[in-house]
Amino acid sequence: MTSQIQCLIVTPEKTVVDQRADFAALPLYDGELGVAPGHTPMIGRLGSGELRIRAAEGTRRFYVEGGFVEVLDNVVTVLTSRALPAEEINPDVVAEQLRAARSRPARSDEEFAERDRLAAQYRAQARVARRAQQAAR
């Protein structure tokens, strides 16, 4: 049994991460899931939130938005439509976007749902950025 996992994050536009790691924490649709070496094969749905990859050279943090994860033979494959490195998220910009999203007029149920979804995404982004800053300190 190897003591490391292979981490892959793939978006439609490019492969964001392909590295070996000791541990990965994934934002599933209903909460966080940790994957250590020797994890049982699984397929899960992702929500939006923070993805952490812990390796010998340090922890990398990403914001991912939806998608899937597949764990098989110590290979963790994350398929997501968006993966942003946490350092690249600007909290001020996100706060502004959140404000704009929340002040969007919503008249129908779908518009309300859309607004809530957007707001939740921006909040998750802000959270990821904040945690990255705390970790850096």
Partner: peptide, 21 residues
């Protein structure tokens, strides 16, 4: 051998639109 979170059906529900996109 796979475990599914939340369930194969729910994942399929998401996979199909994604593969269309």
């Amino acid at each position: 051998a796979y475990e599914f979170f939340p369930s194969p059906e729910a994942i399929l529900e998401e996979v199909v639109p994604t593969s269309f996109k």
